[in-house]
Amino acid sequence: MAGNNSFLVKMGQLDRRLVFVVIGIAVFLPLKFPIGLAVVTTPTTQDVFNAVDSIPEGSTVLVSFEYGPSTRPEIEPMAITLLRQLFNEKQKVVAMALWPDGQFMSTRVLERIADKEYGLKWGVDYVNLGYRPGQEAVIKGIAKDLRANYNSDVRNNPVEDLPIMDGIYTVKDFDFIFSLSAGYPGTVEWVLYAADPYGIPMSTGVTAIQVNEVIPYVKGGQIKGILAGMSGAAEYENLVKAGDATRFMDAQSVAHFLIVLFIILGNISYLVQRRKQTA
C-alpha cells in the first residue's frame, strides 16, 4: 500500500514540462485527426442570434473590431459568422476599430466575406472606416459627431461620398452595434459611452477571458446576449454556418478534459499526503 500511496503523491508533483508536453499533444492530435463532437447552443448565444435576426431588414449595423492577432482564433470565427448572418438578411455593415490591429482584422474578414463570398459593393453595402486612436474617447467622439472623427474610409473616400453613410452623423444613427472585443477598449466602453446613454441596441462577441467582466451588462439587459470565446463562436456557427471554430472545438474539449484530469490528480495526491500527515 505504501508504494501505491507514494505513486499517488507523485502524481501531484509532476514536472511542469511534462504538463506542457501533454497539453501540447492534446491540442495537436485532435486538430490533425478531428473527432467531430456535437455543439450544444447556450441561451446567451441564442440571444445574440435572435437579436441580430430581429434587426429590421436594410438596417445599418456598426461592427467594431477590438481584437488583434493574439486573440484572432477566438474572435475571427465570430466576425465571419456575424457578417454572414448580417449579409444574409441584407443589412448594411459599417466596420470600425478601436484597436489599431483591429483594422487589419476587419480588412481581412471583409475582403473574405463581403467581397469574395457575397460580392457586395464597397461604400454601398459595407464600408470599413478603420481605426482611430483614443480608446473610449473615439466612442464619445462619434457619439457627438462621427464625421469629425471619420472624415474618410480606409480607402480614402470622403465619408460624404459614401452612400452607406448618408444620414449617419452620430453613433445614434446606427440601428445596432456589434462589438467584437478582446479587452480594453471594447464591449464595456461601448456600453458605457454609446449603447447605454443613447439606447442603441447592441450585442457582443468576446474572448473567454472577457466574459466575466461583460456578463453583468448582459444580465443587466444592456447587451443582448454574448458570444463567449471559441465555444460561443462554434455555437453561433452552428446556428448560421459551420466554420473554423467548429473544427477547433475537438481540441478544445480534449485539452479542457486533460486539465481537469490534472487537477483531479493533483488533489488526490494532496489528500493522500494530508491523510499521511494527520495519521
Binding site: L37, A38, A208, A228, S231, H256, F257, I263
Partner: peptide, 13 residues
C-alpha cells in the same frame, strides 16, 4: 472545473 467542462462539447456528452 464545471466551467471548463461545461463549455465544451465533451462536457455535454
Amino acid at each position: 472545473i464545471i466551467l471548463m467542462l461545461g463549455r465544451v462539447p465533451l462536457g455535454a456528452k
